[in-house]
C-alpha cells in the first residue's frame, strides 16, 4: 500500500508537468490548427531568460512571472516574424518551419550558455509531506500542483466564460465566419501563440528544479511526451490534456519501476500507436478531426 502511494505521488508530479505542456500544445492547436513542434525549444528559451533573472535576483516568484512574459514575447515573435508569412499551400510547412526554429533556438542557446546543466534551486523546504512514516510528496511538488490547477482553471474560464475566449474559439473554428462576425482573427491568432508559449515556458521552468538543470535540450523529451499526451487526450481538448497528462505520468512511473527506465519511450510509442489505431480523435475529443 505504501509503495503504491509513493508511486502515485511521484507519477502525479511527473504527469502534472506533462499536462501543463500538453495544454500549451492544445491552446495553439485550438487557436491556429497548427501543431507547434517548436514549443519545446521556445519554452526552453523562455526558461533561460527566467534563469538569468533568477541568478540575478534570487527570486523564484519573479522568475515565474518572467517566464510567462518571455514565453508570451517569444510566441508573438515567432508568430509575427515567421508563421504569418508561411506559404499556406500545405499544413506541413508550419511543421517544417517550426523545426527550423527548434534548430536555431537550441543552437543559439548552446552557443550562448554552453551545453552544461544550469541547476535551478527553489526556495521551498526539502522536508517532505509525510503520511504515517512515509514521505509522499515534497512541498515543491505541491506548489507545482497548485500552480497548474490555477492555470488550468484560468484557461477553462477564459474559453468558456469570456467573450475573448469565445472569439478565439470562433476564429480557430472558422476564420471566414468569425471575421464576418467582427472577430479580429489575426489578433486572436497572435493571442493564441502568446498564451500557449507562456504556458509552455512555465511548464519547463517548473520541471527543471526536479531534474539535472536547464540545458538547451531540456525540452526535447518533454515535447514528445506532452505531444503524445495531447494526442491521447484529443488535440482540441484542454480537459483531455490534463487528464491524459496525469494518467501518462502515473503509467510511466509504474512502467519504470517494474521494467526499468529504458522501457519508458517504448511504452510511449506503443500507447501512441494504440490510441491512433483505436481512437485517432483522442479519448476526449468529440469531433473526427485527424482523418485526412
Amino acid at each position: 500500500m505504501s509503495t503504491v502511494l509513493l508511486l502515485l505521488g511521484a507519477g502525479l508530479a511527473r504527469g502534472a508537468v506533462f499536462a501543463l505542456f500538453a495544454l500549451a500544445l492544445v491552446l495553439i492547436w485550438r487557436a491556429t490548427r497548427i501543431a507547434n513542434f517548436a514549443q519545446g525549444a521556445m519554452a526552453v528559451t523562455a526558461a533561460y531568460v527566467a534563469y538569468l533573472v533568477l541568478i540575478g535576483t534570487g527570486s523564484f516568484p519573479l522568475a515565474v512571472v518572467v517566464v510567462l512574459l518571455a514565453g508570451a514575447g517569444i510566441g508573438v515573435g515567432v508568430e509575427r516574424g515567421l508563421m504569418r508569412y508561411l506559404p499556406t499551400a500545405s499544413p506541413l510547412n508550419a511543421i517544417i518551419v517550426a523545426i527550423g526554429v527548434v534548430m536555431v533556438l537550441t543552437g543559439l542557446l548552446g552557443i550562448l550558455f554552453g551545453a552544461d546543466y544550469k541547476p535551478i534551486s527553489v526556495p521551498f523546504s526539502r522536508e517532505p509531506i509525510t503520511v504515517g512514516s512515509l514521505a509522499i510528496v515534497s512541498p515543491y511538488t505541491l506548489f507545482v500542483f497548485v500552480v497548474i490547477a490555477v492555470v488550468v482553471a484560468g484557461i477553462g474560464l477564459l474559453f468558456t466564460r469570456t467573450s475573448l475566449g469565445l472569439a478565439m474559439r470562433a476564429s480557430a473554428f472558422d476564420e471566414e465566419v468569425a471575421r464576418l462576425n467582427g472577430v479580429r482573427v489575426v489578433r486572436m491568432r497572435t493571442l493564441g501563440w502568446m498564451l500557449s508559449s507562456a504556458v509552455g515556458g512555465l511548464a519547463v521552468l517548473l520541471a527543471v528544479p526536479t531534474e539535472l538543470g536547464l540545458n538547451p535540450h531540456s525540452g526535447d523529451l518533454l515535447f514528445v511526451n506532452a505531444f503524445t499526451v495531447a494526442i491521447i487526450g484529443g488535440l482540441d481538448s484542454p480537459v483531455g490534456a490534463v487528464v491524459a497528462g496525469l494518467g501518462v505520468g502515473v503509467l510511466l512511473t509504474i512502467v519504470t519501476t517494474l521494467w526499468g527506465a529504458t522501457v519508458g519511450p517504448i511504452a510511449i510509442l506503443l500507447l501512441l500507436v494504440l490510441v491512433l489505431l483505436l481512437r485517432p480523435q483522442g479519448l476526449f475529443s468529440l469531433r473526427k478531426a485527424r482523418l485526412a
Binding site: A35, P91, V224, F227, I231, T262, L269, R290, L291, A292
Partner: peptide, 28 residues
C-alpha cells in the same frame, strides 16, 4: 499502415516517437 489514415501533425508525431524509442529498444 498505422499512419495511413493520419495526416500532418499526427503522422509527424508518430514518427517522432518512433525515432526516440529506437535507443530504448536497442538498450532494452
Amino acid at each position: 499502415i498505422a499512419g495511413a489514415r493520419l495526416h500532418g501533425p499526427y503522422l509527424a508525431g508518430l514518427t517522432l516517437a518512433l525515432v526516440l524509442a529506437l535507443p530504448a529498444l536497442t538498450s532494452l
